[in-house]
């Protein structure tokens, strides 16, 4: 993708993000303030890119799954499983490396399970992943013993609340993961093959694509992203909360992908746009907290904003926006000419 086509692809998301930021700063004018204290950057934008880490990570994997015309409802529960595994490993004294390895392996195994159900047994993705969505939290509770499993490891906690040259570690993790996955799918042929099976699985198989293995790999990718998100959520509160870790985040992740302009019918995808979608959602969440409305309004405000965004991005509405944009361009050109 060349620079200009990429820009055209993510333009709606950039505009939406800008609009949401402007809206929030109306209620909270100090939005843009970023200061550097105690070796860390502090400010609302920093909060957004830190708090948005779990959804951003989930959105990376979810984008690929959705590109294959699938969906992964289990990521929230997988977060809980992987967070619990990591906390358990630390608690057992296995050390940070082993804990991360076990959490990552748990995520990959969960993805393998989903992928096999979808690719080999032909179960509809929404049903296949629903199984783990429901059962996964139970598995996580078994690991934590039903309590909030706390641990004492500053190294591990660093992943949730530490900073690197002032930037929160969760932010570093999601940006690096996004770049990593982006390079993986665009510098190899994976992206093309994933889009191909998403548009037409049968034709792709007949063209020689190993669609089963590819589908499984995509669900495993999603599981791995969920593992990273689970590790961050667990490290953040220094404890694995099997009941609440990642609760309902699968829905936010799907929403991020949709706001990112990716079709639920599969095919063309953009990880970058999904990440922008995740940041849009997080800006809304943080904005609601800052605005100081009573809690009862939180979900309503979020829902209204999401509806407005989706309507503005809908195929019915886009032509009007483009028309408006072209008019604006023309009138600004004429104004320029008049000025000269």
């Amino acid at each position: 993708m060349t620079g200009s086509t990429l820009l055209r692809r993510i333009a709606p998301q950039l505009l939406t993000l800008a609009a949401v930021i402007v809206l929030v700063s109306i209620y909270y004018p100090a939005f843009y303030q970023i200061v550097y204290v105690n070796d860390r950057l502090v400010g609302i934008p920093i909060d957004v890119i830190k708090r948005g880490a779990p959804v951003a990570l989930l959105a990376i994997g979810m984008t690929l799954v959705i590109a294959t015309r699938g969906i992964d409802l289990s990521v929230g529960a997988v977060m809980a499983i992987c967070g619990a595994s990591a906390a358990w490993s630390i608690d057992q004294g296995y050390g940070i490396g082993a804990a991360l390895g076990i959490a990552g392996a748990a995520g990959l195994v969960c993805g393998l399970w989903n992928g096999v159900l979808v690719a080999f047994f032909g179960i509809q993705p929404i049903v296949a992943t629903l199984i783990l969505m429901v059962a996964g939290r139970g598995v996580a509770q078994l690991i934590t013993g039903g309590t909030i499993l706390t641990f004492d490891s500053d190294t591990f906690a660093f992943l949730g609340s530490g900073t690197m040259i002032g930037v929160p570690v969760p932010t570093v993790i999601w940006i690096l993961t996004g770049i990593g996955f982006g390079l993986l799918v665009r510098r190899t042929a994976l992206g093309l093959l994933v889009e191909s099976i998403g548009v037409n699985l049968r034709a792709s198989t007949l063209a020689g694509i190993n669609s089963r293995v590819l589908l499984i790999a995509v669900y495993m990718g999603s599981g791995f992203c969920a593992a990273l998100a689970g590790v961050i959520a667990t490290a953040d509160i220094r404890g694995a909360d099997a009941n609440n870790a990642g609760l309902w985040l699968e829905l936010d992740a799907i929403l991020a992908v949709v706001i990112g302009g990716n079709s639920l019918l599969g095919g063309r995808f953009s990880i970058l746009a999904s990440l922008l979608g995740a940041m849009i959602i997080q800006t809304i969440n943080t904005g609601i907290l800052l605005a100081g409305f009573p809690s009862e309004f939180n979900l309503v405000i979020k829902a209204v904003l999401v509806i407005v965004i989706l309507v503005l991005q809908s195929p019915r509405f886009m032509p009007y926006l483009e028309l408006l944009a072209s008019r604006f361009k023309r009138s600004s050109v004429t104004r320029l000419e008049a000025g000269e």
Partner: peptide, 13 residues
């Protein structure tokens, strides 16, 4: 597509 699938994902054309 078919040529790429035969070459494998790791060797993009």
């Amino acid at each position: 597509l078919a040529l790429q699938a035969r070459q494998g994902w790791a060797r993009p054309i």
